[in-house]
Design a protein around this nucleic acid. Structure first.
Lengths: 113, 113
DNA sequence: GTTATATTTCGGTCATAACCGAAATGATAA
DNA sequence: TTATCATTTCGGTTATGACCGAAATATAAC
């Protein structure tokens, strides 16, 4: 029960919901997410830590970057609920534009300024 | 968007989720909810205030009591999401036992001790 | 090995939220 | 009008969470 409440809490933050939505588009490194959301990388890292603790993302190293990927829960009901929450949030304009921008983000340009 | 996030936040608290679940059973006064959840009535009142602000409950006076009722959102997607969240939370044992207890709660006995 | 750099951790600030008991409110009942 | 009692508001405490910049860590590139 508490596990489920924590899952809901993790999704009840617009920035984390945005991170989930863009990670559903494609795997991203912290730099890219930082650039897309316009926040400090430490903040993004902490959000990712919350999502990780709730098994909503996984990551794997790729050269000098770490790719974060969205991960659906095994439980079908939880999966359904999360799917609806994220899909519904995409009906928001700012939200959907962010998702659209995700396709063209390029770590080679963004990182190591 | 923020409206939806606030709705999720309102449901991301186990006590408020419990209140929603028991109000789906039948309308209850603050005393009854207080008794069922075992918390201070001021705390319950504040939780109800949050649910009210998010249009998840309505209330009407009934003699010396105020009956709180659960209210589904008009928006169908939101309704669906909330329905699944509450139904899923009822699969928790403690949660479902609380819901079961609701049927037999009686304000005449509980209130004005 | 040293440097560069992506990521995480840490210290700190600010805001918010859950909870309680007590006081205030407001409607009912006497 | 006064007393009663359900409910809300208030003051205060404690915990948590979002955010930042800076320091620490770890990996990769040289």
């Amino acid at each position: 029960m508490n596990r489920f409440i924590n899952l809901l809490k993790a999704l009840s933050d617009s920035n984390r919901l945005k991170i989930c939505a863009i990670l559903m588009e494609k795997p991203l490194c912290v730099c890219e997410i930082t650039s897309l959301l316009g926040m400090a990388n430490s903040t993004i890292s902490e959000h990712l830590s919350v999502l990780r603790k709730n098994n909503l993302v996984v990551y794997e190293r790729d050269g000098k970057w770490i790719n974060y990927k969205f991960k659906w829960p095994d439980n079908q009901t939880e999966k359904m609920i999360i799917m609806q929450i994220i899909e519904y949030s995409k009906t928001d304009r700012e939200f959907s534009e962010l998702v659209k921008k995700t396709a063209s983000v390029d770590r080679e340009i963004i990182c190591s300024r």
